[in-house]
Amino acid sequence: MTKRGNAIEIKDIRKSFGTLEVLKGINFVIPRGSIVALLGPNGAGKTTLIRILSTLLTPDAGQATIEGFDVVDEADNVRGVIGLTGQYAAIDEYLSGRENLEMMGHLYHLSKPDTKKRAAELLEKFDLADAANRPAKTYSGGMSRRLDLASSLIASPPILFFDEPTTGLDPRSRLMMWEIIDNLTKEGATILLTTQYLDEADQLADRIAVLDGGMIIAEGTPNQLKAKVGNERIEFEFDSLECLKKAEKIISNDSILVNEEKYTLSVANDKGVKKLKSLLEEFEKSNITVVTLSLHKPTLDDVFLKLTGHQATAEELAEEEKEPKKGKK
């Protein structure tokens, strides 16, 4: 069955909780078969938008359709085509992994044989077969998250919502989750996921929408977005203010950030190692002592600084730093 139009269409969606305006008019279209990441800090409205699209919340204004079904007026039809994995594992901890999946299969109204077959397949594929008959409360964080994801896939719905699918996972589980999500898009699913991490959005998404203060402030492919932020930055720490000032003069034509208290200076690294080498040579010539040198990949905070002129909150920064950096595949 082929349908015309987009998988998800969002028109001027607004939502307030009391006096707090959480979504201030979201407009967005997601073509069938693509994977889109909603990037933003806590409180940006990511979860609220996902909850509206998955019929858990009613918007105050605006319209959203999933596979052509209105999320308010045709909520039942919408529920038949979506799978939702929320921020917290939505599994029944007393039931085993298999029982959880089979319960979800029945509630998705699959036949008994289909349910059994799908549950067994998903347990196998998500590396849960050995733990299939153990109560879910004995599962590790990564296992719970995989079971949660598997639950939303039991009826292979064409539209999937993942709300921060890797928050709180260890690096290995995180990579595993990325692989699973990547494979789902290859099979043709349309996925909308939220994340606080630029590298995650970069890794998974065809397109990224940056959400801040209830509005989409930028949208584009990962490359377009990163181009806006600039590439990697090189940070130098000097031994004195004098050296810092001299260095500042040498590269004054670049977009540089200077911290006079810490004697540090950072510059966009747009030409890779060559740039680094030429800078170091120039510093050498002018007798500038470099104490330390470090490379910084663009972070969510850089995106925010660039796009909004304000920093992501300290809380987000802390989380960003805690998260281990992953290597490119």
Partner: peptide
């Protein structure tokens, strides 16, 4: 393990009142 390509994809909800 994450290769989901061979999963049964043609599962359809049953119809009931």
């Amino acid at each position: 393990m994450a290769d989901t390509a061979e999963l049964t994809r043609n599962v359809k909800p049953e119809t009931k009142s």
